[in-house]
């Protein structure tokens, strides 16, 4: 075993020598790049270890996680986030029980009502208004709720766009094209500032829900286009086969078209939800104290003034970590879906 290991290192070194130091010019380039990388690494590490003052991060950890949620109730969002994390780990490396794998999706969807219950309170927990929600909890809540709402909405839009009824088809393509022509920030402004004006007096929608609503309107247009791509790549012969079995139009959509279209669109949908997660940071501008908003409010505190780099490096790490988890989960899902049906 060890011998194989050593010999593979030898081979590696040989190829390294052949590729990077084959002549004088290559050697110089290689050395320059090594120099550049090591200087950059050294400076970064030096800053990270000796210059940076991590107190701004460490002493505010609960704030980054939960915003201004009342401290003695912070176990509630914590429970939710930890359960999401455990479920992710479980999904990736849990046991292969069939009944469990089949119901995993339901459990995932179930985390949303659980999260809302834990955050809102009621039924035995003390109620907490949404203006106290914040930090990573709020970011995740915005992402999860918006993507879950925009998926069915996007599917319906995509189906309408493929519809044979001209009115429905036109309306949905106008909607999709309009949404794709408006910048996200404008839609979010609409959600935060204009919706309250349109609503009759006395009815008020929570700011968080207005944000979720605006994100859903926006993202579903993009999701509709991704799913339409999936629908169009299903050959017509599939519909003929389903027709000849006597399935009706709705059954064909439900059992034949949507499952195949979703599978084809899955990589694009992952992209959308990761994009959505990052776009929730725009809400910081519109006054929701989500992850980026917390960072900004901490920087406004005189005690931590000027420590931009620490805060933003830390936030970048958090965003990176959550995005990586999402990407790994999506890849896992893709592999499971294509495991038996690689070529169709």
């Amino acid at each position: 075993m060890l011998k194989i290991y050593i010999s593979s290192i030898k081979v590696f070194l040989k190829t390294l020598k052949k590729k990077l130091f084959s002549n004088l010019f290559n050697t110089i380039i290689t050395l320059l790049i090594i120099l550049f990388i090591s200087v950059a690494c050294f400076n970064t590490f030096e800053w990270l270890i000796s210059q940076a003052n991590w107190k701004v991060v460490i002493s505010n950890l609960p704030l980054y996680a939960f915003g201004s949620y009342p401290p003695n109730e912070q176990w509630r969002p914590a429970t939710w986030i930890i359960s999401l994390l455990l479920l992710s780990i479980f999904t990736l490396c849990g046991p292969e029980w069939k009944w469990l794998r089949k119901n995993l999706l339901i459990i995932w969807v179930g985390t949303i009502p659980l999260g809302l219950y834990l955050l809102y309170g009621g039924f035995g927990l003390s109620p907490i208004m949404s203006r106290h929600w914040g930090g990573l909890t709020l970011t995740i809540l915005l992402t999860v709720c918006s993507s879950l709402l925009s998926l069915p909405f996007g599917i319906v839009l995509a189906l309408c766009r493929q519809s044979s009824l001209p009115l429905i088809q036109k309306l949905s393509s106008i909607y999709i094209d309009a949404m794709r022509a408006i910048p996200l920030i404008a839609v979010l402004f609409f959600g935060q500032l204009l919706i309250p004006l349109f609503l009759p007096v006395g009815i008020e929608i929570d700011r968080v829900w207005r944000a979720i609503f605006a994100f859903t309107l926006f993202v579903s247009a993009y999701i509709a286009e991704d799913i339409r791509g999936g629908l169009q790549s299903i050959p017509n012969t599939q519909i003929e086969a389903a027709n000849s079995l006597g399935l009706n139009q709705y059954q064909i959509i439900q059992f034949i078209l949507i499952p195949q279209a979703l599978r084809i669109a899955l990589p694009a949908l992952t992209n959308q939800s990761i994009g959505l997660f990052q776009n929730t940071s725009l809400m910081a501008i519109l006054g929701l104290v989500e992850l980026l908003g917390v960072g900004r409010s901490i920087l406004a505190n005189p005690e931590f003034i000027g420590q931009y780099i620490e805060v933003y490096v830390w936030l970048a790490c958090v965003y990176w970590m959550v995005c990586t988890i999402m990407a790994i989960l999506a890849r896992h899902l893709e592999q499971r879906m294509t495991i038996n049906q690689a070529n169709f």
């Binding site: 012969t237 599939q238 003929e240 086969a241 389903a242 059992f255 034949i256 499952p259 195949q260 599978r263 049906q341 169709f344």
Partner: peptide
Amino acid sequence: VFQQFNLFPH
């Protein structure tokens, strides 16, 4: 029964 089978791949 079709020439290209037309089974549902999923």
